[in-house]
Nucleic acid binder design. Structure first.
Length: 348
DNA sequence: AAGGCGGGGAA
DNA sequence: TTCCCAGCCTT
């Protein structure tokens, strides 16, 4: 007997009931894997429900407009996932059937080593590992591995190790069991080793040294940036733009704004408005629309202020911006930051 | 190999 | 605050 047996036995009894575990549909399994990238189950669940209701199969998704797909992703973050999902759906819809191997799945946009392994093992029973953050933690503790998990070579090491030990039967359940253990018992802090089904095999668990694993050297450094959004109006319409490809919040909408390294005060905003819209300085006088807020991301910290309103008598359209009817604003896909402050823009 | 890319829950 | 979550892509 070995640890893989005990792990699977535990999984059969203790696994959570999740909607994507109630189906064998590759579309649903693929969607769930994309949606849960760097995202907790609790956070993704309501999105999964709404998404599958509106896009029940790959053809419905492929036929949709990207803006509507983003609308259903609104607030979930990492929006390139939604755009790549949509692109991949178009490719899949043009095929006779879903690919059945991890190698084929990994050719699709947004599908990397983890997701391809997860989909192929769960939906098609291919004997291939799926190493995510949970698996890194469980396996590094189980074997007291001190390799830096932020290095690609360490991922290969873990995949090699798992390929050697994973059972031929139920590879998908085996991969999910590792993730389930990491998510429910073998937590980053305060793991519950007393209820762990494989603690007797675990180097870290037996010695109480769980806090040493996994080893992760790279740490993201957060940069601070200042943003100012302005309510600019012309004949009852507001100035908004769809953020360009390539950067943060790509494809999502926001009101007219400026960004700067330095603090953005009223003088800064008045100067920006004067230079952009060429209106008389005395008419460029504006005030705060709402209190400033701090918006924190993993790699950014934004200090955000809101100004206006600015009424334009002449029609000025900065590059990339459009005039939007206030009633249409609700339909635009927006980042969480913009979702939070849209009300202040509409009412004031 | 390194950095960009969201948002939220937990300690 | 800090960590990290069913990671992927570009440079």
């Amino acid at each position: 007997m070995n640890w893989t047996f005990d792990l699977l036995l535990w999984y059969d009894n203790a696994k959570r009931t999740l909607p994507w575990r109630e189906t064998g549909d590759p579309y649903c399994i693929w969607l769930s894997e994309i949606m849960l990238q760097q995202t907790r189950v609790d956070q993704g669940m309501p999105y999964y429900q709404r998404f599958t209701e509106r896009f029940p199969d790959v053809y419905q998704l492929a036929d949709a407009q990207e803006q509507e797909v983003l609308k259903y992703w609104e607030g979930l973050g990492y929006y390139s996932r939604a755009r790549n999902l949509h692109k991949a759906a178009k490719l899949l819809a043009a095929m006779d059937k879903f690919p059945s191997t991890a190698a084929e799945w990994q050719k699709l946009p947004g599908v990397g080593r983890y997701t391809s392994g997860a989909v192929a093992s769960i939906a098609f029973h291919e004997r291939i590992p799926a190493v995510d953050g949970n698996v890194f933690r469980v396996i590094s503790r189980l074997f007291a591995i001190t390799s830096d998990i932020s290095k690609p070579a360490t991922l290969k090491l873990f995949e090699r190790l798992l390929l050697d030990v994973m059972p031929s039967e139920r590879p998908g359940d085996f991969n999910q069991a590792l993730m389930e253990l990491g998510a429910t018992i073998c937590a980053p802090r305060q793991p519950d080793c007393t209820t762990c089904p494989i603690v007797q095999y675990c180097e870290a668990g037996k010695s109480g040294n769980w806090s040493l694993y996994p080893v992760k050297l790279a740490k993201v450094k957060s940069k601070q940036l200042n943003l100012a959004f302005m309510k600019v109006e012309h004949q009852g319409k507001q100035l908004w733009r769809k953020r360009p490809e390539g950067g943060i919040w790509a494809g999502l909408w926001e009101p007219y704004g400026v960004e700067a390294e330095e603090l953005i005060d009223v003088e800064f905003v008045e100067k920006a408005i004067f230079e952009t819209f060429k209106i008389p300085k005395e008419k460029a006088s504006i005030e705060p629309l709402a209190p400033s807020v701090t918006h924190v991301l993993t790699h950014r910290k934004f200090i955000v202020s809101f100004w206006g309103p600015v009424f334009l008598s002449t029609f000025v359209l900065p590059d990339g911006y459009q005039w939007i009817e206030p009633e249409q604003v609700a339909n635009l896909p927006k980042s969480r930051l913009i979702m939070n402050v849209t009300a202040a823009f509409l009412q004031s």
